[in-house]
Design a protein around this nucleic acid. Structure first.
Length: 420
RNA sequence: GUGGGUGUAGCUCAAUGGUUAGAGCAUCAGGCUGUGGACCUGGGGGUUGGGGGUUCGAGCCCCCUCACCCACCCCA
């Protein structure tokens, strides 16, 4: 019979991987909590329309990467390809804008994109998603990057680059777009096929092209950065000086653009050279118009997402403090009768307890105890029962001693010994 | 969607076209009847990803297919 496997781009997260995920989640929650972010959870399945309207109908995500299907009632549903749309929807649906001036929100969970898998890229991938609603103060932009730097330091990530840029507001972007299109029109013969397609659809994305000729054309192109309106320009400068105030170094990359339509002003990417082609493991930006476009009140906002499997590839190997392990080895049915009371006593003391189910030879049970990394093994057989004692063996120094056969006394005594 | 690479035991990998496809690790058992961990002995575990073809003979050569990896594309 054919073995059933995970679908392409889907995987089980086990062992070392799930430990890394756990550390990323723990550290994220810690810093987010310290800075006043509230956790929420939103559905993985939403109306297709939500994503089309927020992400932009001409983006690659919406055009060809969504897991979209029609449900039994005939509605078009989509597995979320990113988190911001759902969080904005939740923000509006719960009326948070009326309850608090600033809403700092985060959520964690799986996202889905129908792409070809490669290093650091899966069809189901996990993100820590962080959003701040209600202010366009550039201090917040800087605060978020600072928080990311704290988190990365905590996780032992040392080599990374924070690239920042401003993509302006609607006004300056419109003006720049005409300038840019007319520039590229003069260079049409040197652009690759993809960029010719992008030219009218989304000319900013030509900056992202890795084709050698296009990079050359790009190097001489006008920059949106130089066309920022006064407000956007001073917003960006203010953001940079706040970064300086936090003491977090950033690199201005005037060609940094993003793949989602809703970004305005500040955009950023945190990259690592250790990641392969998909080197951005955290990215985000400001989106001052999205909430309003989604039918809410005018609400400036900013957010970012951490790609957990990408970050997991570069987090330092952290050793969690090891918990003590106690093992109960029993010989015969009479001894096995003590399994339940002993187990209960250890759990009551908050002590991890292990045992074999088949209770084979003592040798076998000792091997098993060793493979589990047991600190103490309790040995109980007919001899001990007759003498009303239990033998405890310290697996480190190999010293054995006897304790009265009383489960809670045993647990208390061994707890005392392990704490020394 | 397009390239390139790789598919042999649970894992990491061997095997000029030629016996019954091996090794290490892992696992299980034994090495005084009741005492673990770098030792010794043994056991179990494979439709060589799948399907065709060439050949006296295919893990190996050819074709198709599937999966995984890397890259393009795109993005976290």
């Amino acid at each position: 019979m054919e073995k059933i496997r995970t679908l392409r781009g889907f995987r089980d997260i086990v062992g070392e991987d799930i430990e890394r995920f756990g550390r990323i989640e723990d550290a994220s929650r810690r810093y987010l909590d310290l800075l006043g972010f509230a956790e929420i959870a939103t559905p993985v399945l939403e109306s297709t329309d939500l994503f089309v309207r927020s992400i932009g109908d001409a983006t690659d995500i919406v055009e060809k990467e969504m897991f979209t299907f029609t449900d039994l009632g005939g509605d078009s549903l989509t597995l979320r390809p990113e988190a911001t749309a759902g969080v904005v929807r939740a923000y509006l649906q719960a009326g948070m804008y009326a309850k608090e001036r600033i809403s700092k929100i985060f959520t964690m969970g799986p996202m889905f994109r129908h792409e070809r898998p490669q290093k650091g890229r899966f069809r189901q991938f996990y993100q820590v998603d962080v959003e701040v609603f209600g202010s366009d103060d550039p201090f917040i932009d800087a605060e978020l990057l600072w928080m990311i730097s704290l988190l990365l330091a905590d996780l032992g990530v040392k080599k990374y680059t924070m690239e920042v840029n401003s993509v302006g507001c609607k006004l300056c972007r419109e003006e720049f777009r005409t300038v840019l299109v007319s520039y590229f029109e003069t260079k049409k013969d040197r652009l690759c096929e993809d960029c010719l397609r992008r030219l009218y659809k989304n000319p900013l994305r030509i900056f992202d092209c890795k084709n050698a000729q296009c990079i050359e054309v790009n190097s001489e192109s006008p920059l949106l950065f130089d066309y920022l309106c006064t407000e956007c320009g001073s917003h960006f400068n203010s953001f940079l000086s706040h970064m300086n105030g936090f003491g977090v170094p950033v690199t201005v990359n005037k060609r940094l653009v993003r793949g989602l339509d809703y970004y305005t002003k500040t955009v950023f990417e945190v990259t690592s050279d250790e990641l392969g082609a998909q080197k951005a493991f955290t990215a985000g930006g400001r989106y001052d118009n999205l909430v309003e476009e989604m039918g809410g009140p005018k609400t400036p906002a900013i957010g970012f997402a951490i790609g957990m499997e990408r970050l997991a590839l570069i987090v330092g190997s952290g050793e969690r403090p090891r918990k003590p392990v106690f093992f109960f080895a029993y010989l015969g049915e009479k001894a096995k009768a003590y399994l339940v009371p002993v187990t209960k006593a250890f759990i009551a003391q908050g002590l991890p307890i292990r045992y074999s189910y088949d209770g084979k030879s003592l040798k076998s049970q000792m091997r098993y105890a060793d493979s589990l990394g047991a600190d103490f093994v309790m040995i109980l057989g007919d001899d001990e029962i007759n003498r009303c004692i239990i033998v405890a063996r310290n697996m480190k120094d190999k010293k054995q001693f006897e304790l009265p056969l009383d489960p809670s006394e045993i647990a208390v005594e061994l707890k005392r010994r392990i704490q020394k």
